[in-house]
C-alpha cells in the first residue's frame, strides 16, 4: 500500500492556482524528493500533506485515510506519527534545546522524566549536538537550530518525516551530515521521507525518486537517473541551472517594454 496518495489536489490563493491538480503517490520506506523553482508551491504542498492547510478540492490519503476530511482529534493521532523539519527550524524560543526536543514526548507519552532526558540526549547525539540541552535557541546558529529541529522531528520515532529545505543555510559538510542522517533514518528504521530541496547534489544523493514541480503541477517524476536524463525542457533547464529555457530570463523586447509601460487597472 502507498504511504501517501495525493489525488487531484487543487489550492488557489487569491485567484492564483498554487497547486494545480497534483497527483502523487509515495511508497512506504522511500525517500521522495520534491524539487522545483522558488515559489512553485513546494512548501504549500508540504503544508497540505501535514494538513496545516486545507485544499480547495482533492484528496490526501495517508495509509488509506483521507486527512482532508478528518476532525481535529483524529488528525492529532495521525500527526503523532509524523515528524516535520521546518524551513527555519521553528523551535519554541521560550524553551531550551532539551525541552524543545522533549516537547512531543512530554505532551504525548507518560514516560518518566529520566527516560525522556535519555531519549533527548540520544536524539541530540544523532544530529551531532551532544551537550547542548541547556542552551536557548537564540544562542544557536541557524544550522544548529535546524539540527535541533531535526532531533525534535524524530523524537517520537515517526514513520513519516517531512523536511522543508534541510540543506538551506548549512555548510556543505553539515549538509552532507544531514543527508546521511536522512538516508540512515530511511534505510535503517524504514522511515518514509519527503524532502523538499533546491540542492541538486543532495537531491540526487538521497532520493529514491524525484518529483519536479513547476507552476503547481508535477511535470516529471522518476528515479534520479531518469530525472537526470529527462526530456522535459523545464526539468532539463532546472537541473542544469540554465538561465534560459521554458522559464525565460526575459521575454522578448516588445513584451518587456509593454510590461514596463503597462499600468494595473482595477
Amino acid at each position: 500500500m502507498n504511504m501517501i496518495e495525493i489525488k487531484n489536489l487543487i489550492k488557489t490563493y487569491d485567484n492564483r492556482r498554487v497547486l494545480d491538480d497534483i497527483n502523487l503517490s509515495i511508497k512506504q520506506g522511500e525517500t521522495m524528493v520534491i524539487m522545483g523553482g522558488s515559489g512553485c508551491g513546494k512548501s504549500t504542498l508540504l503544508r497540505h500533506i501535514i494538513s496545516l492547510a486545507r485544499p480547495d478540492s482533492g484528496q490526501i490519503l495517508i495509509k488509506g485515510q483521507d486527512i482532508t476530511v478528518m476532525n481535529e482529534a483524529r488528525l492529532v493521532e495521525v500527526r503523532k506519527r509524523f515528524g516535520m523539519l521546518f524551513q527555519s527550524g521553528a523551535l519554541l524560543n521560550s524553551l531550551t534545546v532539551g525541552e524543545n526536543v522533549a516537547l512531543p514526548l512530554v505532551e504525548h507519552t507518560k514516560l518518566d522524566r529520566k527516560i525522556i532526558s535519555i531519549i533527548v540526549k540520544m536524539k541530540l547525539e544523532l544530529v551531532g549536538l551532544t551537550g547542548f540541552e541547556n542552551l536557548m535557541p537564540s544562542q544557536l546558529s541557524g544550522g544548529m537550530k535546524k539540527r535541533v529541529g531535526l532531533a525534535r522531528a524524530i523524537a517520537m520515532d515517526p514513520e513519516l518525516v517531512f523536511y522543508d529545505e534541510p540543506g538551506a543555510g548549512l555548510d556543505p559538510i553539515t549538509t552532507a551530515v544531514v543527508d546521511k542522517l536522512i538516508m540512515d533514518l530511511t534505510k535503517k528504521l524504514g522511515i518514509t521521507s519527503i524532502v523538499v530541496t533546491h540542492e541538486m547534489k543532495s537531491a540526487f544523493r538521497i532520493a529514491d525518486r524525484i518529483a519536479v514541480l513547476y507552476k503547481g503541477k508535477v511535470v516529471d517524476i522518476g528515479t534520479p537517473e531518469y530525472i537526470r536524463n529527462s526530456k522535459h525542457p523545464y526539468v532539463n533547464q532546472f537541473i542544469n541551472g540554465a538561465p534560459d529555457g521554458p522559464e525565460p530570463l526575459r521575454r522578448s523586447k516588445d513584451d518587456y517594454l509593454s510590461r514596463l509601460t503597462s499600468f494595473d487597472e482595477d
Binding site: 501535514i50 516535520m84 521546518f86 519554541l92 505532551e107
Partner: peptide, 25 residues
C-alpha cells in the same frame, strides 16, 4: 507580541504538526 512572533516564525505550525493543540498549550 509573543504569540504573534511565534506565528510568524512557524512555531504555532510546529506545535500543530506535533499534534499539540496551540490553543490548549
Amino acid at each position: 507580541a509573543e504569540l504573534g512572533t511565534m506565528t510568524v516564525s512557524e512555531e504555532i505550525d510546529a506545535l500543530d504538526t506535533m499534534g499539540i493543540n496551540p490553543v490548549r498549550y
